[in-house]
Amino acid sequence: MGETRVRQLETALREAGVRLTRQRAALLRVIAASADHPDAAELHARAEAAGAGVSLATVYRTLTTLQAQGVIEKLELQDQPARWEVTDPHHHDHMIDVETGEVMEFTSDRIERLQAEIAAEMGYEIVHHRLELYVRRTRRG
């Protein structure tokens, strides 16, 4: 899966007319390997740790290009730097822990049905949606 993802990202850059430099190739490997939702600075630090020698400006330009190509998504979260994830063909929503900043993915058939029902009651059908729940762990005891 990882190499397939890297190839998809490489193809997207080429199709956008962006030259695939050694630095960008290393950054794409970092993006493809990210199981979390890193921000641009975290991606830059990971690429640097991998010896990419890529500038933060190149990271931002590359992310913007990949987003325009539809292969990565930007998560603009309340009071946090934008986070990034590779586009997933399977829909999921996000919960963001307001204390730790952790971003967790989840799916819920109940929520999906309820959203569709509400839209239908109002005379609409859902074309696209994003759901972000800002959460705090409950204290038990």
Rank of each mutant, 00 (worst) to 15 (best):
E3S: 09
Q8V: 13
L9S: 00
L9H: 00
E10G: 03
L13Y: 00
A16G: 00
Q23I: 01
A26E: 11
L28S: 01
L28P: 00
R29F: 01
A32M: 08
A32P: 02
A33N: 11
H37V: 10
D39R: 06
D39I: 04
A41F: 11
A41Q: 15
L43M: 05
H44Y: 14
A47R: 02
G53Q: 01
G53I: 00
S55M: 12
A57M: 09
T62L: 04
Q69N: 05
G70I: 06
Q78R: 13
D79A: 10
D79Y: 09
E85W: 02
D88K: 11
P89M: 01
H92Y: 14
H94Q: 08
M95V: 09
D97W: 03
D97K: 05
E99F: 09
G101A: 03
E102W: 02
E102C: 01
V103F: 05
S108N: 12
D109S: 15
D109N: 12
R110F: 14
Q115H: 05
E117H: 09
E117R: 10
A120N: 07
G123E: 01
G123P: 03
E125S: 11
V127I: 14
V127P: 00
H129A: 13
H129G: 08
R130P: 02
L133W: 10
V135K: 04
R136E: 15
R139V: 14
